[in-house]
Every structure is written in structure tokens, then in C-alpha cells.
Simulated assay, not measured.
Amino acid sequence: MILQTFLIGLVALIGYSEYFLTGASMIFRPIALAPLVGIVMGDIPGAIKVGAAMELAYLGVVEVGISTPQDMVSASVLGTTFALTTGKGISAALTFGLPLSMLILIIQNVMYIFVAPLYVTKMDEYAKNGEDHKLSMIAFWGGTAVNFLPSVIFIMLAFYFGSGFSKQLINMVPQFVQDGLVVASGLLPAFGFALLIQQMLRKDIVPYMILGFVLTAYLKIPIIGIALLGLVIVMILYYNETKLKKQLELFGGGIEDDDEHF
């Protein structure tokens, strides 16, 4: 159990590496972290199914500007853990993972407000004295320890003490809220897709969206077939655009030659 708890903490740390090591790799998403949890729990197929369902539910959860959604790492790790241990799937993942992720978000904000300024002050001192090595070390390790280690420790404790510890926290959430989370699991995927489409919706893209819907809903073409068809369309558009650019360059060059001739 102790080894498993340590490995769960390592999975959480891998998820948080999105913010201090790997960059925008999307490794903190449920679709990436759930299989790692499945390896630790010994149920990879079940974890992949839960991760895919959670990814759909959290598809619209993105950090835009100053908006701060729930902590995705804890929601992914703990949600998958409790979904596998309770056998209730996505319902347990949302019921347990979502409130706990909000609690961890509060912990992170407390660290940002009260603890982070302490090492930031030390960073200013190192910068003033030109001690760049110390500045880099405290910026990386200090920021990592202050911002993410408390979250990793909390995730490990929640896993170690199991559903009993988590249920005590969940009991603080009204029952109607928990029921609403279960119902929302069926609505969140559509909401997430709507948010994404709103960002990318353009007049020249709408026909392809309608085409994809028709192929899926009426012609019953599998997703792989539609993806291959989309690849063909992209290749045709790319080659036609490249050919058009070459023709325009030749035509433009001819105009320049005529101007020089006159």
C-alpha cells in the first residue's frame, strides 16, 4: 500500500510537470494520467475507459486568461482511483475527483498568497546581487516545492486513507450538488465541444463540420474512415493552395517584367 501510494504521488508529480518541466504537453489531462494510474492500480483497460470518459467531461475545462478552473491533475488521478476502487466508473470519478480538485485548488491559492512571496523576496535578493545560479535554483525548486508538493502530498493522503477519508470530505458537499455532478457528466461533453467549436467556428469550416456530421449520422462511416477522408481533403487543399501560389508568383513576376520593359 505504501509503495502504491508513492507511485500515485509520482503520477501526480508527472502531471504537474506540465507547469514546470515539460511545457504545454497536455500530460495533465485525464486521457494521459488515467492510464498511468491504471498501471499502478493494475487495471489499465478500466483506467483507459475512465480517462476517456473524464476527458470528454472535462473537455471544456481550459485555462483562458486569468480564469482558473479546478485542478486537473488531482481530478484525473483521484477520479480514476476512486472510479476503479468503487467500480462506479465516471460517476465516482466526478463525485470524488471534482470536489477534491477544488479543495486542492484552494490549497494552491493559499500557497500562492502566503508562502510564494517569501521565496520571491529571496529571488529578488539574488537578482540584485547578480547570483544567477542561486536565482535559477530557487526559481525552479522553490516554485516547484511551494506550488505543487503540497498538492502531491494531499493526493497521496487521499489515496492512502482511501474512500473513508474522501467520503468525509464529500459529506461536506450537499447531496444535491453530488447528484448534479452525476447528471452533468452527460452534459459536459456537449458543453466542451460547444466551447471548442465557438473558438474555431468560421464560415469556411462550417461545411466540413456538416459533412462530418452527415457521414457519421446518416452514412454510418466509422471515425477512422472520416479521419482518413479528412486527411485526403487536407492534402487536396494543401496541394491546390501550393499550386495557386506558384501560379500567382509566376503571374506577378510577369507583371514586374512588363513594368521594367516599359
Results as ranks from 00 to 15, higher is better:
S136N: 12
S163T: 13
G51M: 08
G42H: 08
E55G: 13
M200K: 13
P117A: 09
F161T: 05
G162A: 10
D179Q: 14
L228E: 11
Q199N: 07
E125V: 02
A57Y: 04
L98E: 00
G60Y: 07
G51C: 08
V110G: 11
A184W: 11
G51R: 04
N109T: 12
T85C: 04
L195P: 00
A194S: 12
E125M: 04
E18T: 14
K220E: 13
L219W: 13
A92L: 03
S163K: 12
E131R: 03
Y208F: 14
I236D: 09
L228F: 15
G230A: 07
I31E: 06
E241I: 11
L248N: 08
L135K: 06
V77Q: 00
I170Q: 03
E249V: 12
G212P: 02
I255F: 12
F161S: 05
L187Q: 08
S166H: 02
V146K: 02
V183C: 03
S74P: 04
G180R: 10
L94R: 02
L244D: 13
P117K: 12
V232R: 07
N129L: 10
G212Q: 05
N171S: 15
G180T: 08
D204F: 06
F20L: 05
M123S: 03
A24I: 03
V146W: 00
Q108E: 13
V232K: 06
L215N: 03
L195F: 04
I106D: 05
G143M: 03
K167W: 07
R202P: 01
P35V: 05
P30H: 08
L13C: 10
G23C: 07
S185L: 02
G254Q: 12
F159E: 00
D259H: 09
A158Y: 03
G253H: 11
A24L: 11
G15K: 02
L181M: 15
L229W: 01
S136K: 14
L219I: 13
V11Q: 03
L21R: 06
D259C: 06
I224Q: 12
I14E: 01
L36W: 07
L219M: 15
Y119E: 05
F193A: 14
A92Y: 01
R202F: 00
L250Y: 11
V214W: 08
G51D: 02
E260N: 11
E18M: 08
S25Q: 12
Q199Y: 07
V61C: 11
G42K: 09
Q178S: 10
L21T: 09
G87Y: 09
V64I: 15
L244W: 11
D43H: 09
G180I: 08
T81D: 01
S163E: 14
L3Q: 10
D132Y: 10
S163H: 06
P222C: 06
L33Y: 05
P99V: 07
M137I: 06
M137K: 05
R29H: 06
D71F: 03
G164S: 15
L78Q: 01
I8N: 05
